[in-house]
Simulated assay, not measured.
Amino acid sequence: MRIPALVLACTAALALSACGSSDDPSPTTTTAATDAGAFPATITHTFGTTTIPKAPQRVVTVGFNEQDFALALGVKPVAVREFLGLYAYKTRPWAPGANSDPTPALVGGAEINLERVAAARPDVVLGIYSFIEKGIYDKLSRIAPTVAQTKDFGVGAVPWDRQLLDTGKALGREAKAKEVVTEVNAQFADAKERHPEFQGKSIAVAFESGGTTFVLGDDDLRQQFFTGLGFVTPKDAGKEYQEDNLSRERLDVLDQDVLVLITDDDKGLLRDPLYRRLKAVREGRVINVRATDAFAGALGFNSPLSRPYLLKQAESRLAAAVDGDPATKVAAPE
């Protein structure tokens, strides 16, 4: 997976806000004690191993969703990387206080600003969902011990629970990480039990902007949110329907039991006659999401904080989409 598949298909149209940074950001705020005997902690990842000698006091996150994972463990970073897309992530409802005083400094958006990372004086840099390459990793490692993603999965495809467990080890909060994983997984298990009708239903998750449409595959964390509820990724002769730029001639790829369509306006695909003739559209099996909606932002973060929030948003809408009654309206997400 590449960074373009991470963002909400609208980065090209997005003017990133300035990445301002305090010269002396406040120390990391913590609300939980570290596990006894947690340090030194050694973590194996795609670029080798990283040893963190003692409990970090100044945490910098350079992954696009990384700040939520630290916050879920009671750690507020001193500096973070911006979340790409149109969603106003600084006021995301599932992470109240994330941008309150002390406000984390910003260390980049599409690209990491190494000078700003260094200015934050980190004890550890978390970059599990950062899509960094070896050269950037080496430069970050010269600033502070840096944790990249595990090599057990493709680039950007580390499941949220593994990301949290690795983050917990780096921060000396493995016990808390396991507790959070158990709690979130229980919520999804309960939802699956409430909705056996989700099991085996095909779902396409697509993003459209400026005439470009792409469809997610199983290796994408956003698709995994829905497959975690029992839905399946559509296949064609055993191959995923994963497209970077879906042509109008292949809009049939979107014609699944459920379609989640995220767009940045209502003037493109939504008005396309070929799209409007899809059976899923005619029968009301589409969850239409705007890129500015909290639904889109929560799906993009796909964190231990945003997943429970998104589950509450998505559950009733998914149920309405698969109930077999075209008269049932699928409510617009918030």
Rank of each mutant, 00 (worst) to 15 (best):
G154M: 09
S306N: 03
T292D: 13
E283P: 04
F131I: 04
K139S: 15
F39S: 08
V322S: 00
S141C: 07
K176N: 07
F64I: 13
E133P: 02
S202N: 11
A119I: 00
T46C: 06
E334S: 03
P40D: 08
A79W: 01
F83N: 03
K139I: 08
A206I: 09
L305W: 13
I52P: 07
L164D: 00
K239S: 10
E249M: 12
F64W: 15
L126H: 06
Y275C: 01
P96E: 05
A72N: 10
A15N: 13
L269Y: 10
P102T: 09
V125E: 03
F231I: 01
A191I: 09
P93F: 07
F295E: 09
Q224D: 11
V258G: 02
T213Q: 05
T227V: 12
V155N: 06
C10Y: 04
A70D: 09
F301G: 03
K192T: 08
A206E: 09
T34Y: 06
D220V: 02
A144V: 04
T292R: 14
L73H: 02
G156F: 11
W94C: 01
K235Q: 14
Q199A: 15
W94N: 04
F198T: 05
P56R: 00
D220S: 11
P56N: 01
T227G: 12
K169L: 13
V289A: 12
L259P: 09
T42H: 09
P122K: 12
L114H: 03
Y275P: 03
C19L: 05
F226K: 06
G63C: 05
G48I: 01
E243M: 11
H45N: 11
A320H: 02
F198V: 06
T233R: 13
G217C: 10
V330W: 00
T227F: 04
L261H: 11
F39Q: 07
E208F: 00
G85D: 00
A70S: 15
E179C: 01
T292W: 08
A15E: 12
V60I: 02
F39W: 07
V181N: 05
G324N: 06
V59I: 08
T213W: 02
V205K: 04
L106E: 05
P104N: 00
G230C: 01
D265M: 12
P4A: 00
S306K: 07
L318N: 02
T233S: 15
L311W: 09
E334K: 01
F69R: 04
L270C: 02
E283H: 07
V215T: 15
A41K: 03
R194Q: 12
T212A: 12
D219M: 05
L114P: 08
A186R: 15
G108A: 09
D218P: 06
A157Q: 12
K329R: 14
D138R: 07
F153H: 15
R285Y: 00
R194N: 11
E240Y: 11
E315P: 09
G37R: 03
L259H: 11
Q256V: 02
T50V: 15
